[in-house]
Structures are given as structure tokens and as C-alpha cells.
Amino acid sequence: MTEPIIRFEKVVKRFGDVTVLDGLDFTVAPGEKVTIIGPSGSGKSTILRILMTLEDISDGVVWVGDEPLWHEKAADGTLKPASEAHLHRMRTRLGMVFQSFNLFPHMTVLRNITEAPVHVLKVGKAEARERAMGLLDMVGLTEHADKFPYQLSGGQQQRVAIARALAMRPDILLFDEPTSALDPELVGEVQEVIRKLAEEHDLTMLLVTHEMRFAREISDRVCFIDAGAIREEGAPEELFTAPTEERTQDFLRAVLDDG
């Protein structure tokens, strides 16, 4: 088996007295498309946020490739807390798509996509623009390049947000409920873009979703998390059709009844 690109090693995350992740062990292989499902408050977003360095960890080690994310290797081989410079370097490998899009409202669509490549990666303006237009083409929004986010529908905004994340050329793309904030009729167009990405790119994808059918279609592996630890994982056909754990069965019964 190839080296994992993401590895959580006994990761603990506490918010005050509340333990959200309780010794989480979790690995993702390069290029793998993994979906995390689980009840509300089980820690799904927290996992993604830790990877995107939006949330630190209380204990354990998170590895991205062969480097610790929240630590740096000291000269004597021990791990010490990461500096901002280390986090900055590690973040270049990751991108994130948020539930609420979080586009920059005062920038055009094109500028939303080119801003970070130009000012963070120091890509030339013309090159960044050309690549942004290519990404807009991929998400089907070339004619909206000069509009501002408020002029777009939620589905279009989320597609721009996906293009914006891709413009940074991440190895790992994180999606936190990318369609939860959308009107039902707009969910499909965003899922279509994510599906295409999953099929055509060797990008590692980590997705949190409540859309079980979508999870089943695009994932190589589905992880069921409850109370801060992974309770069951497997290929979507297995996990969805024949879950072995009682908690998984209960959860799936509940969400599938709703849907």
C-alpha cells in the first residue's frame, strides 16, 4: 500500500471541557475520495477544519504526507508545536470549500479566483487569469467572470468557490457540506462539478455531506463517525447496504427515512 497522504494519529480535540475528537485514528491514501458521514455535532467539520489549520489540536499528531501538520520536527527528532511559517507552508497542499461559500463579496468572480495565486503563489497576472478562465470553463461559468458574487445564485457561487480552491493547486481538497446551504434545485449543478472532479482528477478529496446518494456515487470509501471517533468505514456499497455496527444502522435508517 502507498504511504497515506493524510494520517490522524490518536488526535484529541477539546473545546473547553467538551472533547470533540477522542483519540481519532484516520488515514487517507493519495487520490482517494473519502466521505465522512455522521450525526450532527459528531466532529465531521472539526476534522476538516483541523486539516485546513482553522482549528488546532489538543493532542496527537496529524500527518500530511510525511510531515506533521501541527508540529515541526526539532533537531533532536522530537515534535514541537508548529510555527506560523510551517503552517503557511503546509497549507499550500490543502484547499477547502465551505458550506457558506465564503466568496469575497467585494471582488469579481475572476478576482476571487486570481487573488490568491497572484499574491500568495506569486503567479503572473496574465497566467493566473488564463488559468482562472480555464477553471471557470470547467465549472461552466465563463460568462460570469466579471460579475460580483451577489449577482450569482448560490449554486453558481459555490462553483466559483470550487474554482477558487482549485486555482491554488492543492493536493487535497476538503468539502464541508458543500450543498447544504443551497436551494434543492441548485444542489445538482454543484454535485455535478464535484463528481467530475472526482472522476477526472487524482486530487485527494475529503467530503462531509448529508447527501447519502451522492456520497455513495463519488466515494471510494465512506467513514461513519460518531462521538469523535470513526465507528465504521468501508466501500460505499458495503457500508450503505450492509452496515455491521448498530450505531451505523441507526444513523442510516434515520437519514434514509428523512430523505
Partner: peptide
Amino acid sequence: VPIGQHEAARALNFA
């Protein structure tokens, strides 16, 4: 300004 703006900026690695 919504917290999401800070988070998106951090995810995109802006200084």
C-alpha cells in the same frame, strides 16, 4: 465581517 471571510482567507494562505 463574517468569520467565514477570515477562514476563506486563511485557507487560501493569504498573509
